[in-house]
Amino acid sequence: MNFDILIDTPEHTVDMKSGLDTMQGASEITRVIAGVLVSGKVPSRKDHKNPIRTNLKKSFKGSYGHTFSLDVYDKELKKKFDDIGSKVFSELMSYFFLAAIYEDTKPLSIAAKAKLDELGEDVADSLLDKLRQTPLKSLHQIPERFNYTVKLRYRENAHDQTILAEANRTTFLKLIPKPSNKVINISACITRFNINTGNGRLLVVGDKETIPFSINIPYRDVKLDTKKKFTRNLDDNNGIHDNDKRKYLTLPSKTIKTSNGKIVKYIVTGII
């Protein structure tokens, strides 16, 4: 697949260090998402021998831009990538970018939703965490420092491009959610829970989407009775899709919010 990165600068030139960092971010985002979709695993570190690589191509006229390709050098992985197809891959690129900056995602096609479901919530969440680290921070070097918009596009041909991600100073600020010291009581049920870390996801009464949570002290220090309340609530609600029939816990919690006030995580301080 061919892509390009377009930096909307009136001078058609960019600061070299920031420009290279931004292009590296675009490369990593594309490569990491592709690797996870074909392997079902999130890489722990960058591997220069990775069979999924991006290759820089030519620049083009207009605002500063460069084309690059995503290439798969392993037969088995190449077949898996071809089975996904460029349309579904493009949809999921946009989906993961928006989710990683805590934005509402667009509805997916049946094929893209099926691939996302196949990936599973745990892998998808790990992928989002991976993107929020170096790849998205690198992509935002130009928006952060010079306030230019950066567009990552799928390049079907020389005339048809589809914007998959648009980075600007606003999206940069969303990457830096802020914790609050105020404790509020929420009524929520546990939808996922890791018995080794104490992290999971919960659904607040009245909400449609689950939100990540963690406990405010090391999980090893949490009392056994409290741990069982989390796991018992998860078990009680297993397989129940009617919100009125779910069992809810009252959880004193602190919030972590993005710059526009959206809650992206709860830090649970206890159970009432």
Results as ranks from 00 to 15, higher is better:
Asp74Gly: 04
Pro252Asn: 11
Asn233Cys: 09
Ile271Cys: 11
Ser86Ile: 00
Ile163Cys: 01
Lys61Ala: 14
Ser90Ile: 09
Ser18Ala: 07
Val183Tyr: 03
Tyr64Asn: 08
Ile215His: 01
Ser126Asp: 08
Gly198Asn: 05
Tyr266Phe: 15
Val36Ala: 05
Ile163Ala: 04
Lys265Gly: 14
Lys17Phe: 14
Asp160Tyr: 09
Ser44Asp: 04
Thr171Arg: 09
Asn50Ser: 15
Ala167Leu: 06
Asp236Pro: 00
Thr197Ile: 12
Ser69Thr: 09
Val14Gln: 10
Ser253Gly: 14
Leu116Ala: 09
Val42Asn: 12
Lys229Tyr: 01
Glu118Met: 12
Leu116Tyr: 01
Tyr73Met: 14
Leu203Lys: 01
Met23Phe: 13
Glu156Gln: 00
Ala114Arg: 06
Ser27Gly: 10
Ala165Ser: 07
Gly239Tyr: 05
Asp225Val: 06
Thr226Gln: 06
Lys229Ala: 14
Thr258Lys: 04
Tyr95Lys: 02
Lys57Gly: 07
Gln141His: 10
Asp236Ser: 12
Ser187Thr: 13
Glu28Ala: 09
Arg145Glu: 04
Thr231Asn: 08
Ser109His: 15
Val205Asp: 14
Lys61Pro: 15
Ile110Leu: 13
Leu77Asp: 04
Phe213Thr: 10
Leu202Val: 03
Asn194His: 11
Tyr248Ser: 07
Ser69Tyr: 01
Tyr95Thr: 05
Val38Tyr: 02
Ser69Ile: 07
Arg155His: 06
Leu202His: 07
Thr269Ala: 15
Asp225Asn: 08
Met1Arg: 11
Arg153His: 02
Val264Gln: 00
Lys58Ile: 10
Ile142Lys: 01
Asn233Ser: 12
Lys130Thr: 04
Glu11Ser: 06
Tyr148Trp: 07
Lys41Glu: 12
Gly239Pro: 02
Lys87Thr: 06
Leu77His: 04
Gly62Asn: 07
Ala165Phe: 03
Asp235Gln: 12
Asp71Thr: 07
Thr162Gln: 13
Met93Ala: 03
Ser187Cys: 03
Lys257Cys: 05
Leu251Gly: 08
Gly261Ser: 05
Asn238Met: 11
Lys87Phe: 00
Phe230Trp: 06
Lys262Gly: 00
Lys174Tyr: 10
Asp235Asn: 15
Leu119Pro: 02
Arg45Glu: 15
Pro10Leu: 14
Gly65Arg: 08
Pro10Tyr: 05
Asp117Gly: 12
Ile195Ser: 13
Asn199Leu: 13
His66Phe: 15
Thr197Phe: 14
Pro135Ile: 02
Pro51Asp: 05
Glu28Cys: 02
Thr9Pro: 02
Glu28Val: 00
Thr171Ala: 12
Gly270Glu: 08
Tyr248Leu: 04
Leu92Lys: 05
Tyr64Arg: 14
Val204His: 03
Ile184Trp: 11
Ser39Asp: 14
Leu98Ala: 05
Leu20Thr: 13
Pro212Asp: 06
Ser27Met: 11
Ile271Phe: 08
Thr67Glu: 11
Glu156His: 04
Gln133Lys: 11
Glu209Gly: 03
Arg155Asp: 01
Phe172His: 03
Thr170Gly: 10
Lys106Tyr: 10
Glu166Val: 03
Ser259Glu: 02
Asn260Pro: 04
Ile29Asp: 07
Leu224Val: 14
Ile190Leu: 11
Ser63Gln: 14
Ser39Met: 09
Lys115Leu: 10
Met93Lys: 00
Asn181Trp: 03
Gly206His: 13
Ile215Thr: 02
Thr191Leu: 04
Lys78Gly: 00
